[in-house]
């Protein structure tokens, strides 16, 4: 049986797909910012915090890292309204993605912080630096440099994972794709095009992160 590929209908819906792309980008960028904030604060609490705080952060990290994102998303979007917390799809998506990325980021940042040799910290102490100064001048910069590649690939994976929010009807790129699919019946074409867009996004993000790394760390 022969099939003629027909991309015209898919490309005709480009403005519609573009709207989805914008939400995908928004979700990705906001989540990266919030996830990084959670990651830095959480890792600091995990490494330097009081014992109960350390345990609380560990429970959060393990709970998130050992359950699927889509279930977390369903729990927040479908489950929480019965507890009186109701969010629209975009907000629920943003919350779920941030909580998810935060847990992974904590682990990465923690590994970076713990990789700083003890002698470095002792050197700081012997120079009479306060703990805050040691963190600010001795620990954080080399730690960030070490964790940057892992963070960057985690962020790219997150960008791809935002496609899951289509399952709670957030109007992201993947969701607009399934609407185009149901309108045009060009199943293969629309998903092939959208996969190509995600691939391009992933490459752009990788390039941006590589550039950022050069900008921040390479000259020092």
């Amino acid at each position: 049986m022969s099939y003629s590929f027909q991309f015209r209908d898919v490309f005709a819906a480009w403005e519609f797909l573009l709207d989805g792309l914008v939400l995908t980008l928004e979700l990705s960028l906001v989540t990266m910012a919030v996830g990084l904030a959670i990651g830095l604060a959480g890792a600091a609490a995990r490494v330097y915090g009081a014992p109960w705080l350390k345990r609380a952060v560990a429970v959060y990290v393990e709970a998130i890292r050992n359950t699927p994102l889509i279930v977390q998303l369903f729990l927040i979007f479908f489950g929480l309204p019965s507890a009186g917390l109701k969010f629209d799809a975009d907000t629920a998506a943003m919350i779920a993605l941030s909580i998810n990325l935060g847990a992974y980021t904590i682990e990465i940042v923690r590994a970076g912080l713990e990789a700083i040799p003890k002698s470095q910290i002792e050197a700081g102490q012997s120079l009479g630096l306060s703990p805050v100064q040691i963190f600010r001048y001795v620990i954080i910069f080399p730690a960030l440099k070490m964790m940057f590649p892992a963070l960057a690939s985690q962020f790219v994976l997150l960008m791809l994972a935002t496609s899951v929010v289509s399952q709670i009807s957030a109007q992201d790129l993947f969701h607009t794709a399934s609407i185009v699919q149901s309108r045009t019946f060009r199943d293969f074409e629309v998903y092939a095009v959208v996969a190509g867009v995600y691939l391009a996004l992933a490459l752009v993000f990788r390039l941006l992160f590589a550039g950022l790394y050069q900008l921040i760390f390479a000259r020092r």
Partner: peptide, 13 residues
Amino acid sequence: GTPLLAWLFVFFF
């Protein structure tokens, strides 16, 4: 560089 979801949809639909 592509979401797993896209592969599932390409194969299924």
